[in-house]
Simulated assay, not measured.
Amino acid sequence: MDAPESESPPVSSSPITSISASAVDDPLSSPYASLNSHCHDLSALQDLACRGAWRTILDKVARSRSLSLLSRPHEHLIYLTFNVLALVKLRRFADAQQEFETLDDDLGSKQYLFESFPDQYPNQKPGSMVPFALRWLHAHLPFTLGDRQLSLDRLYVLLHFIRDTKLSRNRDSVTEISIDLWKKRETFVINSIVSHHLTLKEFKVCLYLLKSETGKTEDPFMVSKLGYVQMQYGDLEGAKRSFELVEKMVEKSEGEDANLNLKNLVGRNKALIYLVGKDYVSAVREYEECMERDASDFVAINNKALCLMYLRDLSDSIKVLESALERVPTVALNETLVVNLCSMYELAYVNHADIKKTLSTWIARVAPDDFDTSCTRI
């Protein structure tokens, strides 16, 4: 059974998911009438990615390529990005690598600059046409193929690229929205790097990275991540101080209508402290408050169920997870949550195999293409 879900900066539990809807941010920086004016049928690809219809994306990309519907360099890069993203989501990593082999390994090459094609982009500002998602996938893919060090090297290179871009955009007085986007990307990549180091329990590196970042910006999600790493490192008092700082940040922003995510972040942090102290009753109370604010908070849902199991209330624990799947299937259909539900079935029922088959059949109807059905362990 999986451990309670932890906190992290505002990215999806899978980094790939969180970049799918913004896979073409860079080429779309200029004002046009619609998404499709940038690239053939782009809005349809965006919609399919948001719905997790990765196999359909592969079909659409293959069809567009075969019919020569893509005419300009940036269109080929955008479609390649969606294709690689879909292949990675479907765990076809070798095929994704073959797509990258059609590109120059240096994504900063002149052939990927708008100004290298003045006839095709006469009014376009100079700069790269490489989507940010493609840069991140280029860094992430070696890890999936077993080359962790190359992946880390590329992530650090990407982090430097982001910081250089932020500096240049600050100098050029680019809009706040654009600068804020690059700040979010910086947080995203730092979180990816920290996750890599956490897998090998390289806590000192994680603490150094997070402390250097939290010293530069008041990001409650990043400070929460610091607290979680401190907790794993055994520094419970340090984690408490970090979580208290997060609470103060959120209280300060409440005058500006602190959103549900921030309020739930504080609640989940409190619950984690209770959980470590084995005060499961108090932890359940905090998670319930989070769920009242946001019924789709799958971290709170999953952890409440685990706390109830630790309290030997297996029946209610199962009900919490089943109820979540019934109420918000697309959000609650999280592989960690399903693994834990199946483990509880195994503990609670003699005929657990039949129950898991029923669950698996239901999942097959509602899950996105990339859902790992093996998590039901049938």
Rank of each mutant, 00 (worst) to 15 (best):
Arg154Glu: 06
Gly146Arg: 09
Asp316Val: 06
Ala62Trp: 03
His140Arg: 07
Tyr349Glu: 11
Asp219His: 07
Ile363Ser: 00
Tyr274Cys: 14
Val11His: 13
Ser20Trp: 07
Thr144Ile: 02
Glu186Leu: 07
Ala305His: 00
Leu333Ser: 02
Lys357Trp: 13
Arg72Gly: 01
Met249Asp: 07
Asp370Phe: 14
Lys216Ile: 11
Val284Ala: 15
His197Thr: 02
Val339Leu: 05
Asp104Gln: 08
Thr187Met: 06
Asn123Phe: 15
Asn351Ala: 08
Ile57Cys: 02
Ile190Ala: 01
Met309Glu: 14
Ala305Lys: 05
Pro329Ile: 01
Ala300Phe: 03
Ser12Pro: 12
Pro329Met: 01
Pro126Arg: 02
Gly146Asn: 07
His74Trp: 05
Pro73Gln: 06
Ser178Tyr: 08
Trp362Pro: 06
Asp47Leu: 09
Met291Asp: 03
Phe117Pro: 01
Lys357Arg: 14
Leu80Gly: 08
Lys183Asn: 15
Asp313Phe: 13
Leu245Lys: 12
Leu209Cys: 11
Ala283Met: 06
Ser178Trp: 05
Asp297Phe: 00
Arg65Ile: 13
Arg63Leu: 13
Gly238Met: 08
His140Ala: 10
Val246Leu: 08
Phe221Ser: 15
Arg185Ala: 10
Thr214Gly: 07
Ile190Leu: 15
Leu42Asn: 09
Met231Gly: 07
Cys290Phe: 01
His138Trp: 15
Thr81His: 15
Ser20His: 13
Ala23Asp: 06
Thr373Glu: 10
Lys201Gly: 09
Leu272Ala: 13
Ser192Thr: 07
